[in-house]
Amino acid sequence: MTNDIFIFAEQRNDKLHPAALQIVTPAKALAEKTGGQVVACVIGDAIDNAATAIDKAGVERIITISDPSLAMYSALRYRTALTAAVQKVDPKVTLLPATFMGRDLSPRVAVRTKAALATDVIELQINDGGALDVVRPIYNGKATCHVTLPADRPAIASVRPNTFAAPSGAGGAQREALSFEPASGDERIDVKEIAKTGGDIKDVTEADIIVSGGRALKNEDNFKILFDLAKELDAAVGASRAACDAGYQPHTRQVGLTGKTVTPKLYFAFGISGAIQHMAGMRGSKVIVAVNTDPEAPMFRVADYGIVADLFKVVPLLTAEIKKLER
């Protein structure tokens, strides 16, 4: 085992996932302590732009594995490729973004490399015994816990998106291309297509700002005012389960325990009461704004800013006010 810190620089269509840049920040901090290098690995097909983007974040070494059969994500092919790169570097710690891909891939690579694993972490450090200590939310954010990974084994952690700011660096990392050696049986998974959901508006897991509506919106048409606001803010539109179950919005937009977990920089909750299961999905947001007619709504307890008023009055005023800003 070396002292290096390895990161999986997730990309799709040669575009680096923003969360992949963010994990360079904790990787550098860990490498400072271990005295090792930060090594990034990019996997896919035709991945020059992604490799350049991770280089600009200031990593020391980049391993690329490029192959037409890696154009789309496959749990098997990607675990084979990533395992090969991890074994080549033999790092002390491997970090992945806790995205759909990172969460899917990390357990497989952990098993393959006989590592220990912590998912969705929000703090990491090497303790005095040389082991990786992490903090991660549990009980859907109702508590956090400290987890220690054994010092005598490689450690793998997936890091919650938007926990760290992306760094920048000089570029010019040493590059190395590894050829992809598929394992027999890797063809058992075949991605047929990527079907976009939600049209041209961002997904709640991708956006820095989310404009969410609840049962109070009363119907699908009324959501239009939220889409208008979202457009001004380049935001995604989210919804409570009550709003999704009533058919006002598709379930792909549901935020919460059985919806998506989101950690945007700014979250607007319009006419959402703040049930514990909704908060499970959004309480990690940096800034929360609540608008509700009921001053007792639990959402006000986690909100940074609240307005006790009718959302149908507030939203159009807010959209107009934001428009003014941009001029």
Binding site: K142, C145, H146, V147, G306
Partner: peptide, 23 residues
């Protein structure tokens, strides 16, 4: 014995959110 071995310890309440402002 061949895999994992992480230990979970020390639970804490979630980070406090500073009290919000009602406008």
């Amino acid at each position: 014995a061949g895999v994992g071995g992480s230990t979970m310890h020390t639970l804490e309440p979630p980070p406090e959110r500073p009290p919000g402002k009602i406008l």
